[in-house]
Design a protein around this nucleic acid. Structure first.
Lengths: 135, 135
DNA sequence: GTCCGTGCAAAGGATTTGCATAATC
DNA sequence: GATTATGCAAATCCTTTGCACGGAC
């Protein structure tokens, strides 16, 4: 069924793609950098290049399987897109990411877009700070 | 009084700093990349290096004179920080940026941080889409 | 005069690209 | 078997750093 996801996305089923999808599914925390994914592949003994990791992640993003975030400068993080939108709390100390969803905020955003004659395609709310453990 | 801003920020008053501050003040749109600032300096005949632009912008950010955003991958944009917090609407076609402020959203964010035992230091809401002209 | 700031060029890190080989359908 | 994906290495882009010179106080 991992393969089905790939095929539905119009992508050929290949070893790197299946592997990367598997890694993203199992990931804990769910947010990984391209480098994280690459390292995970190496650890399981795969013979893969960084270029492929980036290519595959970009294809996944285009296909809507994955979301890419730029929480902090320097590098993007990727997470599996499981359909339900959510926003993020990012700890500036440990880099940890938590997710949340708030109905009111979502509604406000839609209204603001409308008020500004903006055709919203995406939106991104990130709260930065210190998590419980890092205070 | 531009100089006063600099001195208050604990920065020596130098030509590049004054010039960059001036450019940010006059900027329209208010959001510039480092490259934009650099080009603006060259156009007014300044003999300056990119490195200085980055250094100065970073110092300004540290001093709280400027805010840095990562709306899109690849490069940061800078805007003068005039104290009042606001969020952004970013057009994915023309790159244009509009600003807005919503009391309700601000309140919700504070609550969410509290609910998650998060000590919020900053927050960032960006709505992506197509602006009026680009639809 | 001392110290900090600057310009230049080179380094750095994340990401992308070109190309020959290898895998999928 | 034809086409698309991959690995490798080199290239690219934005940003930072090292160092000797120049300017601010």
């Amino acid at each position: 069924m991992r393969d089905k996801n790939l095929r539905q996305a119009g992508l050929k089923v290949t070893l790197p793609r299946t592997n990367i999808l598997k890694i993203l599914e199992k990931a804990e925390p769910r947010h990984l950098t391209a480098e994280d994914v690459y390292q995970a592949l190496l650890e399981q003994g795969e013979d893969v290049g960084v270029a492929t990791v980036y290519r595959v992640l970009t294809q996944f993003e285009t296909a809507g399987l994955v979301k890419r975030h730029y929480f902090e400068p320097g590098q993007a993080v990727f997470e599996l897109d499981q359909g339900e939108h959510h926003d993020h709390l990012v700890c500036l100390n440990c880099g940890g990411v938590e997710e949340f969803f708030d109905e009111t905020i979502e509604r406000c955003q839609t209204e603001i877009a409308k008020k500004n004659n903006f055709q919203m395609t995406d939106h991104n709310l990130t709260i930065y700070g210190l998590c419980q453990r890092c205070v």
